[in-house]
Design a protein around this nucleic acid. Structure first.
Ligand code: SF4
Ligand code: SF4
Lengths: 145, 145
DNA sequence: GACATATCGGATAAATGATTCTGATTAATA
DNA sequence: TATTAATCAGAATCATTTATCCGATATGTC
């Protein structure tokens, strides 16, 4: 099972990070992404279609087609991908799933959890793919081995 | 969709917190728990059976039967319930689901995520049901209205 | 002892999420 | 223009999680 993101979202994040590391190529085929990241090809293709709809990714049909990022690296944050795939539920709903939740009737972990929730949001929104580039390339290379 | 715990685990946590707030009663029936927390009766009953196996809860069969905690409040932590139901996967696996993960090939959020993961663990393990009691009672009452 | 009421335990059903398949469309190239 | 390689779009399948059902068993009460 996945931790906080759906598998779809995990794969989406991975694929977008991969695209950010391959800016020398005009487009990257779904097959290449699938093989490098060990994701089912059809699945990653479907996810990138969705991200195309939300404007983060662009696709090129036909021979030598594939996917590429549709914005500058400095304009894409991880939270944008999460928003497009899983939405913001994880930041609104709450850990223990109690009914009728509000800050007037907090459960025992309310205070601590809301801090962690905010910090998670920050982690995903403070930096852009550009800031991550060096780390991303290193990570991708260590997978390819 | 739930955030980090499975629904089973969310319900388990809620039910145990409820039991911790009803220590005046010798046992509490699955039906009472289900009604107060808006959980399907058969489901909460099944979950409490599992927690009985792991020794956190005790059950009493027959007429006027039900469930009760099997340890002192000071000896039960939320992490114990999580461990019994969902296990420790959320603390070992990682957010983005990359293959071949290790601290030698960290993804861009590795550093920040491991801090948040540790803090979540702390949140669930530092205090016991006894420490929570006042807050728990208040929370339960606000649901019952 | 008979009866009512509860959990137990296993089987089953429904719902959701993940994955695959298929046919159509698009575009480069020879 | 014919061929080939790729995405697109949506249906179909598979797996897992969530929820329900039911017969068996235990226990308190009359
Ligand atoms: S009280 Fe707050 S932290 Fe607790 S379950 Fe509700 S919303 Fe979540
Ligand atoms: S590098 Fe670390 S934080 Fe990133 S996906 Fe792997 S284990 Fe998780």
């Amino acid at each position: 099972m996945s931790i906080i993101f759906s598998k779809k979202c995990e794969y989406g994040l991975q694929a977008v990070l991969y695209l950010s590391s391959t800016t020398t190529q005009p487009v990257v085929s779904a097959e290449e992404i699938a093989k490098t990241l060990y994701i089912p090809k059809e699945f990653v293709s479907k996810i990138l279609q969705e991200l195309t709809t939300s404007g983060i990714v662009a696709s090129k049909k036909g021979k030598n087609g594939g996917f590429t990022l549709n914005k500058a690296l400095s304009e894409i944050r991880l939270i944008d991908i999460v928003a497009a795939i899983d939405g913001f539920d994880i930041f609104n709903k709450c850990v223990m799933g109690f009914p009728n939740c509000s800050s007037e009737s907090p459960c025992p972990v309310h205070g601590r959890w809301s801090v962690l929730s905010k910090e998670t949001y920050t982690m995903l929104s403070e930096e852009t793919l550009e800031d991550f580039l060096a780390k991303t390339k290193h990570k991708i290379q260590s997978i390819q081995k």
